[in-house]
Design a protein around this nucleic acid. Structure first.
Length: 421
DNA sequence: TCTGGGGTCCTAGGACCC
DNA sequence: TCTGGGGTCCTAGGACCC
């Protein structure tokens, strides 16, 4: 029997999260900004209607926002992550097979239930909204790529009520005719341009293409996309999140930095973050890379330095890593540059279970695992950064801007909303 | 003045080995 | 003029996703 896939996608998720605890935001144009209050990453329908494009730098639309009484927020990730896990919790009641695809999307494998599949989609939409306050769109089809296309169409067309089932041949074709090739999951800007050059504009045009051409020009992944649109499942549902093979921690600064000492603080902090992520997934890393760069948008004095080194043995110890990172930083640092971003990447990531230790590493250079466990435990109970390495600085004047942050309604005691009766 | 962050997969080509 | 064959591993670059 054919599997039935549903994609549940939260509508303008970050904006919806902000609206849950602040009803005055309903009907009002709302936008949420990226880290450092840089770009627009989420827009309410009202903001979209006023022509605010996705990912536009905030300073370019600030006037429009002020003129139209926009509510503007910095990204509040603690809030979004918490709401996301509530939504995913609800979804897991509808299927034993759920793949959490991103913070605001999940694939479900549905099985024939009482009242029919389409109706189940409607029930999912209603239940998520009632229990979490987040509006979602649901797409249903015989492959994940088709479910994605259906969910996108459901979001655009109010007549669907946010739920679209394209298992039927007629519905599938109609949906593909109305979907631009570049909007298909797996076809990005580069392939989209290439396809246009061959007269392929819609997803329906795409499925008529020669499979050999697609394989040659868009690799095996492009061919999979093609087959999936035809209704042949090629992309399995992945329920277990695989451990990351590389871990990056990087941020832009609130202002350009010139001093090595400030960069050292930033690199120490990012290394701490990366090491925490590494330990969270019970892994070690073999290689660390440090990079620093000046603004991408200024030609003058442009510089981008990056350098890697291998640890004497795989490690997940913050202290060991900071030491290595700061040595790398000294070697790539150039005085006189105005740096606007730095980052740390860990690679050669393996499970700590199959750790290959080095016989010649001194115990004192190895770093104590008990120390890391203790720090992690304390930071988990009392808040992150209860304990931190002094090298990451105390005042941190360079840390990113978040001037428009809403309260952490659900994850901080002092921010819990109060209701007057 | 002001422009995000974090990932994955695939392929081609070179190094190296027997 | 002619210059083996087959394999693995690694890396860089390009594509994609949210």
């Amino acid at each position: 029997m054919k599997n039935i896939y549903a994609l549940v996608d939260c509508n303008n998720f970050y904006v919806s999260c902000e609206r849950i605890f602040n009803p005055s935001l309903r009907k009002r144009p709302v936008i949420v900004l990226s880290n450092n209050d840089g770009c627009v990453v989420a827009r309410s329908p009202e903001a979209k209607a006023l022509g605010i494009p996705f990912a536009v730098p905030y300073f370019k639309i600030r006037h429009t926002a002020e003129r139209n009484n926009f509510a503007v927020f910095s990204s509040n990730y603690s809030l979004y992550a918490d709401i996301s896990s509530r939504v995913m919790g609800v979804l897991s009641m509808f299927s034993p097979h759920v793949e959490i695809y991103s913070i605001d999307e999940a694939f479900l494998v549905l099985s024939a239930a009482e009242g029919g599949i389409t109706e189940q989609g409607v029930r999912i939409r209603d239940t998520v909204y009632r229990w979490t306050g987040v509006p979602v769109s649901v797409g249903i089809g015989f492959t994940k790529t088709l479910a994605k296309a259906a969910a996108n169409a459901a979001k655009k067309d109010p007549l669907t009520g946010g739920v679209l089932d394209i298992r039927g041949e007629e519905e599938r074709i109609k949906c593909l005719e109305n979907t631009k090739a570049g909007d298909v999951w797996g076809i990005g800007p580069a392939y989209s341009a290439k396809l246009k050059g061959r007269g392929v504009y819609s997803a329906a045009d795409f499925i008529r293409m020669d499979e050999k051409w697609v394989k040659r020009n868009m690799t095996i992944t492009g061919l999979r996309t093609l087959m999936e649109l035809k209704g042949v499942p090629c992309i399995p549902v992945d329920e277990e999140p695989a451990p990351k093979k590389s871990i990056v921690s990087s941020r832009s600064f609130s202002r350009p930095l010139q001093l090595l000492s400030e960069l050292e603080e930033a690199v120490s902090l990012y290394t701490t973050r990366a090491a925490e992520k590494l330990r969270n997934q019970k892994s070690t890393a073999e290689v660390i890379t440090v990079f620093i760069m000046t603004s991408r948008f200024k030609e003058e004095g442009r510089y981008c330095g990056s350098l890697s080194c291998e640890f004497p043995e795989p490690s997940c110890h913050t202290g060991v890593m900071i030491k290595a990172a700061l040595l790398l930083l000294k070697r790539i640092y150039r005085g006189g540059c105005a740096y606007n971003k730095a980052g740390v990447m860990l690679s050669g990531v393996r499970s700590s279970r199959d750790l290959q230790m080095n016989l010649f590493v001194q115990e004192c250079d190895r770093g104590s695992p008990v120390l890391m466990e203790t720090i992690d435990r304390i930071n988990r109970s009392y808040g992150s950064e209860t304990l931190f390495y002094a090298s990451s600085g105390i005042r941190r004047g360079w840390q990113m801007k978040q001037e428009l942050l809403s309260p952490r309604y659900t994850t901080r005691w002092s921010d819990i909303p109060e209701i007057e009766i």
